[in-house]
Design a protein around this nucleic acid. Sequence first.
DNA 1: GCCGGATATGTAATACTATAACATAGGCGG
DNA 2: CCGCCTATGTTATAGTATTACATATCCGGC
Lengths: 133, 133
Amino acid sequence: MAAEFSRRTESLLHRAEAICEHRGANLTELRRHVLGMILDSASPTGAYELLDRLRATRRGAAPPTVYRTLDFLLEQGLIHRVERLSAFVGCVAGCTVDPDGESHTHAAQFLICRKCGRVVEMQDHDVSSVLAR
Amino acid sequence: MAAEFSRRTESLLHRAEAICEHRGANLTELRRHVLGMILDSASPTGAYELLDRLRATRRGAAPPTVYRTLDFLLEQGLIHRVERLSAFVGCVAGCTVDPDGESHTHAAQFLICRKCGRVVEMQDHDVSSVLAR
DNA sequence: GCCGGATATGTAATACTATAACATAGGCGG
DNA sequence: CCGCCTATGTTATAGTATTACATATCCGGC
């Protein structure tokens, strides 16, 4: 049904399924598909790019389709929004955390390369704690 | 001619004039007016809000009018863009720095209140240096 | 079985943010 | 006066996100 993703992505998706099931959250086909596209991408993905790709297999897709799905994934801590780029990236921690973890969000920072646009997610406790003050 | 601003804002504007003159940058009436509106505001100001207010006194104002002006102010380090809000705030450091300072940008972080939207600019050397790694 | 509510998605329209492309105007050095 | 540079005007359009309402599906209780 859904598009085929890389082995790594499929593995993370499997993990995400377990997390959602554990939480009673419903990782539907649509949500799984969008999460897979984000995880599979080498760089942050814009909402309308996701929309275009969705449309290949989902005729009625429209902006709300994608934004609602992104809201769900953000709530579940499975992706992050990179404000600077108006784009979305998979959350490594969110997709690998133990399903028992209740916290759906966590502190993170992004390093964005001004030249190539690549993004690295970092979690630095020092930064987080200074910000907490 | 230009709108009247608070005493504090006028003082910062005066400072900005000196900085620009020192650099050979041209702080025109339009640019001064926009900077004044931003400095005078208690919270970050959106580009189209600035545009609306500009139009009160400037008939032909259009989006490029405002965005080009913001680009100039950003380059001069006189304001910051708050990505999260797609809005702009005055840069305290930029408007108070010694005119001899050459660096037009500096490291800063923002604390944004999720409830009231107020923004506080902070400059924490610890955060900056951790990010530098 | 069916009713009611909750969740998920479809659909149309529109709001908000930002940039592209080309035109005009004024200053200033040669 | 000419040519260039900077600043701004003007029109159009691209890109990002939300509102509002309609439809469908599932599931629990009766």
